[in-house]
Computed example of a mutant assay.
Amino acid sequence: MASVLPSKNVDMEAGTRRVVAYAALLGTYSAEALAFMATEACRRLRWFPTPRDCLDILAEYRPPVSDQETALRLCQDYTTERFDRWFTNVRAGEPIGDVPEQWRRIAVERGVLRRLPGGAFVIRSKYHGPFKPYQAAEAKAA
Rank of each mutant, 00 (worst) to 15 (best):
E32V: 03
S7A: 07
P49I: 02
A142Y: 07
W86F: 12
A33D: 01
E109S: 13
A31F: 02
Q102W: 13
A59G: 09
R44C: 00
E32Q: 07
L45N: 03
M37K: 05
D11Y: 13
I123V: 15
F83N: 14
G15M: 11
T39M: 09
N9R: 14
V99A: 14
R114M: 13
V4G: 09
Y29M: 00
A136L: 13
P95S: 14
C75R: 14
L74Q: 15
G111I: 02
T80S: 15
E101N: 10
L5P: 09
K8A: 12
Q102V: 14
R104L: 04
A137F: 02
L58V: 09
V65G: 05
A120W: 05
P64C: 05
E138G: 01
T50G: 00
Y127R: 07
C75E: 15
D56H: 05
L5D: 07
Y22P: 01
R85P: 03
L25R: 14
D53F: 06
S3G: 15
S125D: 14
E69L: 06
G97C: 10
E40I: 05
K140P: 00
G93W: 04
T39Q: 11
G97E: 13
R73D: 05
A14W: 05
A31R: 06
M1C: 02
P117Y: 08
M12L: 15
E69G: 01
E138T: 00
D67N: 04
A31C: 02
A136I: 02
R114F: 12
L58E: 09
S125A: 15
A35L: 10
A71G: 04
L45F: 05
D84V: 12
T39P: 00
A141C: 01
Q135G: 05
R124P: 02
I96W: 06
A71V: 08
I123M: 03
M37W: 05
G15Q: 14
E138D: 02
W86D: 06
D98G: 06
V65A: 10
G111M: 01
R124H: 08
L58K: 07
R124G: 04
E109L: 12
L5C: 04
P63K: 02
A33E: 04
N89H: 07
L74S: 09
V99Y: 15
T50L: 00
F87G: 04
Q68M: 07
Y134G: 07
K132A: 15
A139I: 02
P49E: 00
R43S: 10
R73C: 07
Y127G: 02
C75N: 12
L26E: 03
F36W: 08
M1F: 10
L26N: 03
V10E: 15
W47D: 08
F131K: 14
